[in-house]
Design a binder for these strands. Structure first.
Lengths: 192, 192
DNA sequence: CGCAACCTTCCTACTGGTAGGTAGACATTA
DNA sequence: TAATGTCTACCTACCAGTAGGAAGGTTGCG
């Protein structure tokens, strides 16, 4: 189905994989140009400025993420399974190297030198994710599935940090399985 | 005492703070030049190539870190206090914004496009840190200070990931206190 | 229908500016 | 005198972004 994707979507796809690999300053219009066989100027037609391209990209990423998480709420009943599905998603992405890092986690590292329009969107994504995790943990605690020793908000932030930190460690050590090891170890502390 | 620092050390100091802010691709020789009032060419005299500069910088950073951690082993008896001191160090750095991110954690995100000589050093740092944390956790478990429900190696990797993830979240949300909240929540699970 | 005006997309060619890096002169000091 | 450090001046390659035009499709109107 990739052949039916519009040019703008192809640009966003390539840009996203480049950002995941090297961050905001780690890619150029020339890189995208070379990857999809189009001139630099044509990319500027679709996205006049780099900051705008990335802002649109993050919007799309957030929309997809939120849709995925909401789908979990409808398809999977148990909060424990919702949480497991979220972790499995990243486990799969990292194992097959299809997307070995969260776009927003990558950009969060560069926060201080990101254009405002990008930085604010990254910040919003962190808020959304934390809110989703909080609701899952709270529901799970009420059903006696999780044993929280702090507020659901704090436990959610801790879980989120573990996931992002696990991505970083897996990448640093070049060991995709390390991600699974870490999040499993973390999960054990919640369900024990 | 900054005035007595050699030019090379000044260069490394500035480069380090620039890397912490924006990563490997987030700074240039011109940036360093402007910051310490020296010409670009003079920086090339001390560090012919950028990859070499960053490699030396990471070596220095690792040396300082290892010295600090070894000092903890000698000054502080209890593994619990050693761990707390390590976390306090970052807590302070992040709170006063003196160094709100670990150099190697920052570079780890860009692993895929780092020169080999830098990437291998970053990888080594992760190994060292994990090894130190493992030894502290193992000693603490033997003394009954920590309650581990996995191997010390796995718990150490999880703790390390939490610390790096907490740095990321604190930066993404612009809230230094979030770092403390997260690592405290994490610590509670080990000592409980 | 025919045709013109318009729109979208992509192109070549270019701009000003910055990247990392080099050559060689000059000053300071051991 | 020889080494060290800094400088000016410069290089090539690349950066994001612009100007202007060619090709093709769509729409509106006589």
């Amino acid at each position: 189905m990739k052949s039916t994707a519009s040019t703008s979507e192809k640009i966003l796809d390539v840009a996203q994989s480049l950002i995941v690999a090297g961050g905001y300053n780690g890619f150029s219009y020339a890189d995208i140009s070379a990857a999809i066989g189009i001139r630099k100027a044509s990319i500027h037609h679709h996205f006049p400025a780099k900051a705008e391209l990335v802002a649109v990209l993050v919007d799309r990423y957030r929309r997809q993420a939120e849709a995925g998480l909401n789908a979990l709420h409808e398809q999977v009943a148990s909060p424990a399974e919702q949480l497991q599905s979220y972790l499995n998603y990243w486990q799969t992405c990292i194992r097959d190297a299809s997307q070995p890092f969260c776009v927003c986690a990558m950009l969060a590292g560069e926060m201080q030198m990101l254009p405002d329009e990008v930085a604010s969107r990254v910040r919003s994504h962190f808020h959304s994710l934390a809110a989703w995790l909080t609701s899952v943990l709270r529901a799970g605690a009420e059903q006696g599935l999780f044993r929280l020793n702090r507020q659901p908000e704090d436990e959610a932030q801790m879980l989120l940090a573990s996931v992002h930190g696990a991505m970083l460690s897996a990448r640093a050590l070049g060991d995709p399985e390390l991600f699974s090891t870490i999040v499993t170890t973390q999960l054990a502390k919640l369900t024990k």
